[in-house]
Amino acid sequence: MGEEMSSKPYIREISKTNWFYGQPRYMRYMAREVTCIFIFAYTFLLIWALRALANGPEAYQAFLAALNSPLGILFNLAVLVGVVYHSISWFSLTPQAMPLQRGEEFVPGNLIIGAHYGGWAVVSLIVLFLGV
């Protein structure tokens, strides 16, 4: 009896579509991956802006008018949440993605993450300073 049980492979049914549901670790992974949809969509908004820019001042004003709408506000708000989540999850992985060694010791992960947050703040402030 015992022999029979141990030789039986341990197989669980795992859903292909909602395997991550209800598991905080997997939910965080999926949230991180889904941010790419926002980045993809937003990049095409930028391309639309470039097209309008190439077509002249009237076309560009029409683009701004189309952007200035409830849908435009909602879209940009959703994208903002998505890209901020992307930044946080991306920077929090940097110690694993590029561990730094100084002598015998590894540079602490929090220091690497902190440096990225610092850089993020500087870049954001420069763009705000030049662009507003």
């Binding site: 952007l67 200035n68 709408s69 940009n76 507003v132």
Partner: peptide, 17 residues
């Protein structure tokens, strides 16, 4: 995108508003 997009999206949100 992690460094640059949040602030650029914030600016287009201002434009949308």
């Amino acid at each position: 995108t992690a460094f640059l997009l949040p602030v650029v999206v914030l600016l287009t949100l201002f434009a949308a508003l």
